[in-house]
């Protein structure tokens, strides 16, 4: 029985065009990156100041720090803190967001709380956590998590509010049960909101982790920055900053983007 002629058009999406765009974009990125390096190098040469080292000096610092193992150790510690607090915040924040998006009464009640925590300066949370729980690892992670949860909750709540009633009824008719509904109906609808929360979340979390480390930890990139600050070692500061930017970018393109592409493959 054939009455749709447009049957098998799926699959052959414009691959050729995508390839061209990719090389073009890569070229631009590389070009602009080199331009930035040149501008930096020229400025450093002109200023010729100890507190504004050029790219070569910073590169040398990165190499020596990496060789001594210091760089790897502190970046690793910081990454571990980022990872732990990121996952806890995503989990708790998502749960709160879904709950508030589904229950209007609870949403009305807790909205004020959310606004309060959203506007609470990160520094205040960090100081309070250290004051109340001491200069401990738990206090450090807790401070980051508390800063991040409201952002995740607000983003995911938006998604939970716009869940399709049509699909929910379908799931009810075919007796999906809560687990099947969550896995096949609810979570896929929330996926774009998780992605948005994860993206903005990662950027926020790693910045807050540095502050937490600077104020109350004896290792991690934040702690190293603190020491470099006390010694006015700008080359060291830039070395750690650049190393961290590279790591974050690798996570972004190597982990987050592939996941997003996979989750979105059904879109036309």
């Amino acid at each position: 029985m054939v009455f749709d002629t447009e049957g098998t058009k799926n699959g052959r999406m414009g691959r050729g065009i995508a390839g061209g765009v990719l090389t073009g974009r890569l070229g631009w990125t590389l070009g602009s990156f080199l331009a930035l390096l040149v501008v930096w190098w020229v400025a450093a040469e002109l200023l010729n100041s100890r507190v504004f080292p050029g790219p070569l000096t910073v590169a040398a610092t990165i190499v020596s720090e990496a060789a001594s193992g210091e760089l790897g150790y502190h970046v690793g510690i910081t990454l571990a803190r980022v990872a732990v607090s990121f996952f806890i915040a995503m989990l708790v924040g998502s749960a709160i967001g879904i709950a508030l998006g589904r229950a209007r009464r609870a949403d009305q009640f807790f909205d004020t709380w959310l606004i309060f925590f959203l506007n609470l300066p990160a520094l205040v949370t960090i100081i309070l956590c250290y004051v109340w729980f001491g200069l401990t690892e738990v206090a450090a992670i807790l401070a980051v998590v508390l800063n991040k949860i409201p952002n995740v909750a607000v983003t995911v709540r938006e998604g939970a509010r716009s869940l399709s009633r049509d699909l929910e009824e379908m799931a009810q008719i075919y007796q999906f049960g809560w687990w099947k509904t969550l896995r096949h109906v609810t979570l896929p609808q929330l996926a774009p909101f998780f992605a948005a929360a994860a993206r903005s979340g990662l950027a926020l979390v790693w910045k807050i982790v540095l502050v937490v480390e600077l104020l109350g930890r004896s290792n991690g990139v934040g702690h190293q920055l603190n020491i470099a600050f006390q010694m006015f070692d700008v080359s060291m500061i830039l070395a750690y900053a650049i190393a961290f930017i590279v790591v974050v970018q690798i996570i972004e393109t190597g982990v987050l983007q592939p996941i997003e592409a996979r989750v979105n493959q059904w879109r036309r």
Partner: peptide
């Protein structure tokens, strides 16, 4: 032929 296709890539029919 369309068993492995995603619905939005198919006609309404």
């Amino acid at each position: 032929d369309a068993a492995t296709a995603y619905p939005e890539r198919l006609s309404v029919g």
